[in-house]
Every structure is written in C-alpha cells, then in structure tokens.
C-alpha cells in the first residue's frame, strides 16, 4: 500500500509538472512512463470491451495496472459509490437511486457512451410460427400480471400451437434484465418471475436451442455466435418488423431494444494522468475493439465529441 501511495504522489507530481503539454505526451508516449492502478468493475456485458482496451493499453503503458471485475452493472455501481473503483461499466444508464448514493458519498462522475448493443428476442430454430413479435405482445408475455396466466403459445395468438411457453431470461443482477423490463414494461425490474433465470447467457442460449417451445432475450453477440441453433425474432414497434443487426441498431431503427453501453468515470480519478490516458485510449480505440468482441460501434463523431468534452474539463 505504501508503494502505491508513493506511486500516486509521483504520478500527481509529474502531472503537475507536465501541465499543459498533455497532448504531445500522449502521442510520443515514452518520455515519462505512466504508472499506477486503475480499478474497473461493473457490467459483464461491457466487460469484453474493457478487457480488450486494457489488453491493448498494456503495450502503450506497461506500468499501469488495470484490473477489471464483472460483477454486474448494479453491483458495480455499489462499489463505485463506495469509492472502491475508478470506472464503473454499465449496460444501462445509471439509476436515480445510484446517482443519489454517489452524491451522498461525494463522488462526481462523467458518463461516457462506449458502444451500442441490441437485445435480441430469440426462439428455437424449429419454431415455425414466430418470426415477428410486437412490443405489445412482448409486454403481454413478460409483464408481472402474466405470471401463471399467459402460459401457452395460443393465448398470445390463437393460430399458434397449444403448447406451454418456456421463458428464459437473465437473472435480476443483470443490466440486460433492467434494460429489457424498462423498455418493454416501462418500469425497470417489472417482470414476471416464473421464467428460467440464467446468470450465464450461454446457458440461456443452450436452453432455448434444445427446446422448441422456448423464448428468451439476450445480448445480440450471444445469439449471433450461435446463429445455427437459434432463430432471431424481429421486433415490431408499430413501424413494421425490424431484425436486430449492426445497421438497424446503430441507425436507431431497432427500437426499443437497441441500447447504449456506458462507462462512468470518477472525476477525481480523471485528474490522475494514467486514468486520463486510459479513458482517452478507450475512446480512441473503442470503435474497433467493440466490433472485435461482438458489439456495435458508435458513429465516429460521437467518440470525437466525447474526447473533446473530456479533455475540456
């Protein structure tokens, strides 16, 4: 711990000494090596992007130790509000209650959008009756009132088979669950509870791929890599059915299940040169790295805008 403190002192001292010449330092890199520790925790959905960025950042600044946890968006914010982390990854925007908790602890933060993701509604590949579902039907199927009431396919549409619906979804710790319930039911966390709640997305994908009468929702990356065993359902928001894809999500036509992925940076930490360098590096490379791990990049100007905003602070 003592060495850490000394490192911090050195880092702060050098940052004061180099005040105003930050940009030239970033580009030629080597003159004063960055060091220190950057602690990240939060969403397991955003985790692969952060891991990829941290991996590449190792080449840039080998002495900076970046550690990443994947305890979930909500659990991540709890640690963030306790001051245990510098950056909190989230697959949904921060909630009012979490903002209040941060405020109470005196933690100011900046929200940064790092990529897009789509939530895909999917069924078994042998399901030949469902290729489009309306938002209203999704609500009817997943709302708390549907519990023990909507249990058979033909209750949604009389033409569909008279068979039990087997629902699969993420467990309540997931930002994916919060986002889906918020967008479909209009209230975060409002969902029927008689579904198979999975902590592991691959388990969910496996469950649906072996059950003809199953339906689930999950991040697009998980469905795409198992495309041969599943069938993605188009979502109809009143403007006709739209399938989730890189194009429809980034153009904003896949509503309401296209979402942004975020990281929240503690302003106090942003004053440390290694954190500032890391966040800049993150935004400069997020487009490529997000696509690498299966997500959808933002338009280039959005990254540029956010970098400018950050460095203006």
């Amino acid at each position: 711990m003592k060495t850490l403190k000394i490192l911090f002192a050195i880092a702060i001292a050098t940052s004061i000494a180099s005040c105003g010449s930050n940009e030239s330092n970033d580009s030629n890199g080597g003159e004063e090596a960055l060091s220190g520790t950057i602690m990240i925790d939060g969403s397991s959905t955003v985790y692969p992007i952060s891991e990829a960025v941290a991996e590449e950042f190792r080449a840039e600044a080998p002495d900076v130790k970046v550690t990443i946890g994947s305890s979930g968006s909500g659990a991540g914010f709890k640690k963030f509000a306790r001051g245990e982390t510098d950056i909190s990854d989230a697959s949904r925007a921060i909630k009012e209650s979490e903002v209040a908790a941060c405020k109470e602890a005196g933690i100011d933060f900046t929200e940064i959008t790092v990529a897009y993701d789509g939530l895909a509604v999917f069924v078994n590949k042998d399901n030949d009756w469902l290729s489009t579902i309306t938002v209203a039907d999704l609500k009817k199927l997943w709302e708390p009132e549907a519990e023990d009431v909507i249990t058979r396919w033909n209750q949604l549409n009389p033409e569909w088979p008279d068979a039990e619906i087997h629902l699969f979804g993420p467990s309540t710790a997931h930002g994916t669950y919060d986002y889906f319930t918020e967008e479909i039911m209009g209230e975060s966390g409002s969902s029927r509870s008689d579904y198979t709640a999975c902590a592991d997305y691959n388990v969910m994908v496996q469950g649906v791929s072996t059950d003809k009468y199953a339906l689930g929702y999950v991040g697009l990356a998980f469905v795409e890599s198992n495309a041969d065993a599943l069938k993605i359902v188009a979502v109809d928001n009143g403007n006709g059915p739209v399938l989730p894809s890189k194009e429809t999500v980034s153009q904003g036509t896949y509503t309401p299940l296209g979402r942004s992925l975020y990281m929240y940076v503690k302003n106090e930490s942003m004053k440390r040169p290694e954190v500032k360098a890391f966040v800049n590096f993150y935004l400069n490379n997020a487009a490529e790295l997000a696509e690498d791990v299966g997500y959808i990049k933002l338009p280039a100007e959005m990254y540029k805008q956010q970098i400018e905003q950050l460095n203006a602070q």
Partner: peptide
C-alpha cells in the same frame, strides 16, 4: 471480489 481481468 476476485476480479475477472488482472494482468499481473
């Protein structure tokens, strides 16, 4: 609080 990514 074991982490998922620790590069050291």
């Amino acid at each position: 609080g074991a982490l998922a990514y620790v590069p050291f």
